[in-house]
């Protein structure tokens, strides 16, 4: 995987951490997934690899349609504001990534660049889940983590197992469907899909 594509994946991930609108966030993770599809097709040397590319494409479009449908059905009167501003979120994400690269720097997948990119995308996803309040953006944080992991699966020498890749895709789709059911119910019960409103369980 060349450096330009890796940097593009990282920049899209960083934009995901900072972005305010849900539709833009959906566009960013979908763009990342489509880059992965392109890479999988360009590197495909067997039918298994093509099937993996197909599964990734199906996941990218399927989830994009699902999330856009959710956004249209759960229109927020005022946008759900995150507790931390976009620049601070980016600062946290970058600092944490650099710290973990320093800590885990010796662990490499194929090239040091790809392993660092995977680590950074996972960190960006975790920061998105933790710092965002909009329930859909939290789910997109998980998708960002999975995009990073899909990248790692694609660069493993000889490729990872077809079965595992298809399974991971199905699990992500299943998780997204369940999260969608919760998103709807939370919106109808609380009048907003804001995870910040979910604070009644305290000891």
């Amino acid at each position: 995987m060349n450096g330009f594509v890796i940097w593009l994946m990282i920049l899209l991930g960083l934009a995901e951490v900072m972005v305010k609108r849900r539709t833009v966030a959906v566009g960013l993770v979908t763009a990342q997934a489509l880059i992965l599809v392109g890479f999988a097709i360009s590197e495909a040397n067997s039918i298994d690899r093509l099937i993996i590319a197909g599964a990734l494409a199906l996941r990218a479009f399927g989830l994009a349609f699902l999330y856009i449908y959710l956004i249209r059905r759960t229109h927020e009167v005022t946008p759900v504001i995150a507790s931390i501003g976009p620049l601070s979120r980016a600062g946290i994400a970058i600092s944490l990534s650099l710290a973990l690269i320093w800590l885990f720097g010796s662990t490499t997948l194929v090239t040091p660049d790809t392993s660092k990119a995977v680590l950074v995308l996972v960190v960006f996803g975790v920061v998105t889940v933790i710092t965002r309040r909009a329930t859909l953006l939290q789910v997109l944080g998980i998708v960002l983590i999975e995009n990073g992991l899909a990248l790692s699966a694609l660069v493993i020498p000889g490729g990872s197992s077809l079965f595992i890749e298809i399974g991971v895709t199905l699990d992500l789709i299943l998780m997204s469907l369940v999260a969608s059911a919760f998103h709807f119910r939370i919106f109808s019960e609380f009048g907003t899909a804001n995870a910040g409103a979910l604070r009644s369980l305290r000891d």
Binding site: Q138, I186, A195, S200
Partner: peptide, 29 residues
């Protein structure tokens, strides 16, 4: 309260399992 609990469970464990999958990818390589 059940929605809150279910949501936390889904998001936090999916995130944790995502981290585990990162380790599994590294292991596989």
């Amino acid at each position: 309260r059940a929605l809150e609990a279910g949501w936390k469970y889904l998001i936090l464990t999916s995130m944790g399992l995502g981290v585990a999958l990162l380790g599994i990818s590294l292991l596989a390589s």
